[in-house]
């Protein structure tokens, strides 16, 4: 009897705390999954798939990420380059590395090339890198775990 009386006097209020808890949990979940670090992943590039690509576990010393789209455009730092422009850019990069007392041979060139690009294009690009004394390459592929 007394209970019923109190219920009529107080306006019914939903308990919001569990909902807020859940919402925060969801936010935390999505924040963790959002990768800020791999900003180099470009949706224009459809990487070739391979089961044997070594998972990327270690941070590369001086990574230089070069991406090649399906039509052969070279992307570096999000900007498109022709082969000649890329050559200049890599020359700058190599000179900068020497200026800070590093060597281009120590740097790692990460090649993210599209699965359908002509192999010759990738080879040309790697040759340009070699001309500027870059010699460590990593060909990136999508890990295919079937």
């Amino acid at each position: 009897m007394r209970l019923k009386q109190r219920a009529t006097t107080d306006p019914p209020q939903a308990d919001l705390m569990p909902m807020i808890d859940m919402t925060f949990l969801l936010i935390a979940f999505f924040m963790v999954l959002l990768n800020f670090t791999e900003a180099e992943q470009d949706e224009r590039i459809n990487l070739p798939r391979s089961q044997l690509a070594k998972p990327i576990e270690d941070r590369v010393e001086t990574p230089i990420t070069l991406q090649v789209t399906a039509d052969g455009t070279i992307l570096y730092g999000g900007r498109p380059y022709t082969l000649e422009a890329a050559r200049k850019q890599l020359l700058n990069e190599a000179q900068y590395l020497r200026a800070i007392g590093d060597s281009p041979a120590e740097a790692t060139v990460i090649v993210r090339a599209d699965a359908d690009v002509a192999f010759g294009r990738v080879q040309e690009l790697m040759e340009v890198c070699q001309d500027n004394d870059f010699e460590q390459f990593r060909l990136r592929a999508e890990s295919d775990t079937r």
Partner: peptide
């Protein structure tokens, strides 16, 4: 915030490398 994170959510594809060492 929740909507923002859901919208910007992208499934991360696992990637791997093949190391090549090719001096001049």
């Amino acid at each position: 915030l929740l909507i923002f994170f859901i919208m910007s959510f992208k499934i991360v594809v696992l990637e791997g490398d093949f190391d090549l060492r090719m001096p001049q």
